[in-house]
Every structure is written in structure tokens, then in C-alpha cells.
Simulated assay, not measured.
Amino acid sequence: MPASHIEQMIEDPDGRWQRILVNIGESSLGWLHARGLLSDRHYAAGDMLRQDWERAGLGIRVTMRWDAAPRDGGRRGPGRRPDPTLAQMAARERFDGAIAAAGPGLSDILWRVACAGEGLAAAEKALGWPSRAGKLVLTLALDRVAGWYRVA
């Protein structure tokens, strides 16, 4: 396994857990974590926030959803799959709770780096902050979010 990849467990749309390889260089949080600028706890909290953001469907969609409607199982057929809308609503509630836990002054950089994938320098510039202020604020936000998600 290359040094830039880690194994991670993800849940697919059918609710099954799969082990995948993730390139940690692809996310801003992964980049910061790989260089020792974020603790394991902070990285885990930021990743949980990003996953909830993605599951809630809060990102920009460039195409229509073409998911098939779930079929009812016959007497011997499989039962109905869980409603994806309920999972999406639960993820949205978790995301909103985590953002609220971070607080109004901290959630801006948290969302930009963890969810939108902006680099720290780009987020600082977009927010009009001085250079290197973002890491401190991001760490404080991730600490609050880790507490909200109950990350050990």
C-alpha cells in the first residue's frame, strides 16, 4: 500500500460496509493530518462531518438522481430497503448539530476545509483572515465537533 493511502471502512448505499483505500492527499483534512498538523481525533471529527455533509446531499449536484425506486419484495423476495430519504434527513440533522456545536465564528473555516475541500491558505484568504490564523480556528472548531460526535 502506498504511503499516501490509508484503509477506511465506508457504508455503501445498500447499508453494507466495505474496506477501501483512500488517498489522503485528496482532502485538505487528510493533508493536514498526514503532516501532523491535526490530531487523530480532529481528523476523525472532520471526516465524520464531511461524510454527513455528503450523505445529506448538501453538495452541488451536476446531474439528476437516477436511483431506481425500491421494489416491494414478494412473499419470498427481499424486504424493502431502508428509505434513503430518512438516512439523508438523519445525516442533515447530524451535520446541522455539528456545525451548531462549532459555533458561528468557527463554522465558516470548518465547512470550507472539511466539506468544501479548500486548502487552509485559500480558506483564510476567502475569509479575509491573516495568514496562519486558520489552523488555530480550525483546530478549535474540530475540537468542538469532536465533542459533539463523541470522538474519543
Rank of each mutant, 00 (worst) to 15 (best):
Y149R: 06
A123P: 00
R61F: 02
G46I: 05
R71W: 02
Q51A: 15
R61M: 03
L38G: 05
G117W: 04
A87T: 08
R71K: 10
P130L: 09
L127M: 12
W53L: 09
S28C: 09
S107V: 07
T63I: 05
W53G: 09
R50K: 15
D47P: 02
R71C: 04
E7H: 11
P104D: 14
A141S: 10
K125E: 13
R112P: 02
R81I: 10
E124A: 02
A121F: 01
S39F: 03
G74S: 15
R81V: 14
P104E: 09
R92T: 04
M48G: 00
E118Q: 15
I20T: 11
N23E: 10
A121S: 14
L120P: 00
I109Y: 00
H5F: 15
R19G: 05
L38M: 06
S4D: 09
H33A: 14
R65V: 07
R71V: 11
D83V: 04
A152Q: 09
E26R: 14
A123F: 00
L127G: 04
R71G: 01
G46P: 08
W148V: 04
L120H: 03
W17C: 06
W148A: 14
S27Q: 11
I60A: 13
G25Y: 07
D12T: 13
K135V: 06
K135I: 14
G117V: 13
A34H: 07
A102Q: 05
G57V: 01
L58I: 00
E54L: 14
R75K: 08
L142D: 08
H5K: 03
L37I: 01
M64D: 08
G103W: 03
D143P: 02
W31M: 06
G57M: 01
C115G: 01
R80M: 15
E54M: 06
R150S: 12
E7G: 05
G15C: 03
G46Y: 01
A44T: 14
R94H: 09
Q51H: 10
G46W: 06
L106K: 08
E118N: 15
T63R: 09
A133G: 10
A121Q: 10
Y149P: 06
T139A: 15
G79F: 08
A87L: 13
A152H: 12
L136E: 14
L138E: 02
R144L: 00
M1H: 05
R80H: 12
L127E: 07
L49P: 11
E26H: 10
A34T: 05
L106I: 02
G105D: 11
G117E: 13
G73K: 02
G77Q: 09
R71I: 03
L29A: 04
K125D: 12
S4Y: 03
R94W: 01
P84M: 12
A44N: 03
W129F: 10
E54W: 03
M1F: 02
Y149H: 15
R144P: 00
A123D: 00
G97E: 05
R19Y: 05
H5V: 07
I6F: 00
S39E: 11
R94N: 10
D52F: 01
D12E: 14
K125N: 08
G59Q: 12
A100F: 02
L127R: 08
